[in-house]
Every structure is written in structure tokens, then in C-alpha cells.
Design a binder for these strands. Structure first.
Lengths: 256, 256
DNA sequence: CCAGTTGTTCTCGTATACAACATGAATTCT
DNA sequence: AGAATTCATGTTGTATACGAGAACAACTGG
């Protein structure tokens, strides 16, 4: 989803502004993979000095969008389809780890309750006869919230940091595929399966079944992999996938 | 291990110089956890302008050594004993993931051979009647090489990046505990067990036993956890642990 | 005596100037 | 004609200047 202009303008510091604007420039496909980035060019385009732009470039390199050139400067990184697969499975592995330690260590009741609340609201959406775009938008939010709460439940700052890094790549995020999902005929089916995973994980955590909780989150991530596979094969849905422009390879030679 | 001054001086760019020098300043305990970092102070101490220092600070924040203050600036991060535990288990999880996909996908023979070569050389060291400091130094290098080759075998840039990030925290690195190990009576015993893990993992990868390979690497990381526990309890060995100054809590009030 | 306020000082974020360097094109020599 | 070399241009890395804002202390009013 493109970032609202107001978000960029409202950002307190120029550095953050540059970071958001640049991310948007990359994700929108305005800057293509392999392109070398010209700092002075960005000075014109973003209307700020080089300093905050350089800071933002360094940040985006850490986030994985850019690759440093040995002689200096950056290029936009390109991802293979397998890279994306790996990123999703990596997220599954980390979320599985989070679920496991949440199960093994005692989880405070409040977090579990919050997770259940989110799940109930997703249940309500899933029960609706038809799913509008707004409903899907709510679903995205609730889904993201559930995943965030799971990480919270692990109560490990080190792990949280690492998971957040993985989620920087937009197509690796659990919210990455919902727009694709909304357009697919199997939308409801996938939603039902994913939601079942959610319920089972909460139950496993409550019952201190660490291994089961871990396995479930891994399998859960595999749903995203399947969505990805479907999305990339079809030019229409492909455009709904955030960051799809960064993915090279299969089906690149499409309509255009 | 402290970084040689020559390494810092030889570094090409001022930014890298600042990064290495700062890391050293933090790891040596010169800058203590909780301290707010003064950029101008560093200008005097490192003899360079603010620009490369600011770059280095941003990098070190990403590496996990620093924490950004909302109002601006950074403080040295402090880690709880549990944070370190989690970081090690996280490494185990990621290396386990690497071992699994190395096993599941076909691994090129060359990498496996290189791993075996490293293991044979470790075997040679383990067979020696006495273990000198030099031998342990060799062991550190070979151990690091084996772990690096394992990541290489997974052949996944995304995973590689993430593992490298985990290894930024010195106490989470597989090489972090060898200096402690060298001083402990159980040194050889632990070395033998760790080396058995290594051998078994290679075998599991060759035999495409992904689950076993994964479990082994997880258990392997647990050895480091045990080492950590022993090391932190004893003030003498504690000083041998790189980055120990960043760990607050247990046994902090020791001899001094 | 305490709290609120004001003023100072220091810090950080940003802009800009400069120098070293890499890159690429034009030119010259073989 | 092709290759090497030189030169010009644009780039990045670094230093520094400046302004806005925060932390802190002194001061004043209740």
C-alpha cells in the first residue's frame, strides 16, 4: 500500500521524511532494481539537502532495499523468487520460535486475552456473507495486530528486533498478501485456514505445547508462500503485491 | 578479542574507522551501558569530524549496540542475561534453519568437502595431549569457518544476512565463548561434544536429514548457553567474555 | 520553602562547501 | 582500426557552519 503523502510530510525529521519517500519511490517502481542511485538527483526530487538523504540511504541499505557499491553509492536490490520464498519461510521460523518460547515461558494473561479479542473480530469478519474491500482492510489490521501480539508474548526484545527486520521486506510481511488474497477466488478458504492456525496457536500457547505452537506458525507462513506463488503467476494480481517490482524472474515478461 | 590498532588505522574510510573504534570503545567498557554518547566528545577522541562519527553511530544502532533517544542522540544498550540467552538460542534457531534447508536442497559437493576439511583440522587439535593458547586460537578460526560454511551451504542470501546480524552481538557469536572455554576445566569435554555436533550435522546434511540437522544445530547453540552460564558466574572467566561489560545483572557486584 | 519560569548552554539535525575519487569520453599512438 | 591514455565531468566522502530545540540551572513569585 502506498504511503499517504500526509504521512511523509508530517514526519518530524527530514531523515524520516527522506526514508519514507525513498521507500515509496522504490516500491512504486519509480526507481528500478539495478539502478544506481544518484544523491544529487534525490536532492532535487525530495527538496532537501544531501545529509538526511544519505542517512536515509544507509537506513534503507540496512532494511535490505539497497546494496552498497564497493566504490561508493548504492543500487536498488533485486530479489529472486526464491529469495522471497526464503524470506517468508524465515519469518515462519522466527514466528515459530516466538510462539514456542511464548508457550514454554509463562505468558501473562493480558496478552493472551488481547490475542483472543483480535481473533474474535477476525471471526466476525469471516462469518460475513460477502467480503468488501473495507472488510479486508480491517482484516489486514487485525491480522497484523495478532502477529504483533504473538511477538510481544515471546517477551524477548532481541527476537522482536530480529522479526521486525525480517518484516521490513514488504513481501515477507504477514500483511503483504492480503490485497492479493482479496482478489482471489480462494480468498475465503485461505482466510478460514489462516484463522484456524491463529486459534490453534493460541490454544497451544495456553497449553504450553511449545513444539505444536512452533510447527503451526511455520505452516502458517507457508500459506503466504502459496499465495505468493499464485500471485506471481498472474499479471493482474501481481500488481497488488507490495514490492513486486523488486522481484525479478518468473513472469517478468508479461503483458508489457 | 580487541581489535588491533593497525586494523583501525588501515581502514579505508573514516566512517569504518569510526565504527571499529567505537565498537572497541564500547566492548572495552570505556563507554558504559546507559551512558549518553556525546558526538563532540568523540570528535576529540577519534580525531575526525562529526559526519563519519554520526554514520558510525547509526550503524552501531543497527548492530544493536546503541539505543536511540527519542529526543535525539544515543545511549549504550545494556543486555540482561536473558537477552543473551535469547540471542544465542536465536542463533541456534537460524543456524538450524540453515542446516535444514542445506539438507533439503541439494548442496554442492565442494562446500561439504570444505566443511569436512575444517572438521578434520579441528579433530587434529582435539587429539593433542595439551591445548595451548595458540591451539585454541586455531580452533576459534576453524570453528568460525565451519559455521560460515554452513550458512554458505544454505545458499540463501536472505538468511545469510539475518544470521550475520545476529552475530553482530559478540556474545551471540559461536566464537564468543572459546576464550572462556580455554580457561575452564571442562574445556576438552565441551570441545569434543561440540565437534561431535559438527560431524553429525555434516552427515545429516549429506543424508538429507533436514529435521535432524536442524535439531543438532539448535542443541549445538545450547552448548554456548551452558558456557555462558558458567562464565558469568565467575568473575575471572567473565572478563574473558567479549562484550561482557554490556551484560547487566547477575554477579555484577563482584570483587570490585 | 517550593514551584513555576526564564535564560543560558549545550546538543543534535540540517545545509553546504570542498577535495579525492571513480567513471566515461575524447584523443592520440601503434 | 583498436587500444591505451589523458582529460573532463560527475560522484561520493568528509569537514564545517548554522539554527532549532532540549536539558539544566538560576531566579522569581507565591
Amino acid at each position: 500500500m502506498p504511503i499517504a503523502v500526509s504521512d511523509i510530510e508530517r514526519a518530524s525529521s527530514q531523515t524520516v521524511k527522506a526514508q519514507l519517500a525513498l521507500r515509496d519511490l522504490i516500491l512504486s517502481g519509480d526507481l528500478k532494481p539495478g539502478d544506481r542511485i544518484s544523491e544529487l538527483n534525490l536532492v532535487d526530487r525530495l527538496g532537501m539537502s544531501r545529509t538526511p538523504i544519505r542517512m536515509a540511504l544507509a537506513r534503507l541499505e540496512d532494511e535490505g532495499f539497497l546494496e552498497a557499491i564497493p566504490s561508493g553509492g548504492f543500487t536498488i536490490k533485486a530479489f529472486s523468487e526464491r529469495d522471497v520464498y526464503d524470506a517468508i519461510e524465515l519469518r515462519g521460523t522466527l514466528e515459530g520460535f516466538a510462539a514456542r518460547i511464548a508457550a514454554e515461558r509463562s505468558v501473562r494473561g493480558r496478552l493472551i486475552e488481547d490475542m483472543k479479542v483480535a481473533l474474535r473480530r477476525i471471526d466476525d469478519i469471516a462469518a460475513l456473507p460477502t467480503l468488501s474491500v473495507d472488510h479486508f482492510s480491517d482484516y489486514v489490521g487485525l491480522n497484523a495486530r495478532f502477529h504483533a501480539l504473538l511477538v510481544e508474548a515471546a517477551d524477548s526484545p532481541v527476537l522482536k528486533r530480529q522479526i521486525e527486520r525480517t518484516l521490513n521486506l514488504p513481501f515477507a510481511s504477514p500483511s503483504g498478501f492480503v490485497r492479493v488474497q482479496a482478489e482471489m477466488p480462494e480468498a475465503r478458504k485461505i482466510l478460514i485456514i489462516a484463522q484456524d492456525h491463529h486459534h490453534c496457536v493460541v490454544r497451544a500457547i495456553e497449553d504450553r505445547e511449545g513444539t505444536r505452537a512452533e510447527a503451526l506458525m511455520r505452516e502458517h507462513a507457508r500459506l503466504a508462500q502459496r499465495n505468493l506463488q499464485l500471485a506471481l503467476r498472474d499479471q493482474g494480481t501481481r500488481s497488488l503485491l507490495p514490492g513486486a517490482v523488486l522481484i525479478r524472474g518468473a513472469m517478468r515478461s508479461g503483458v508489457f
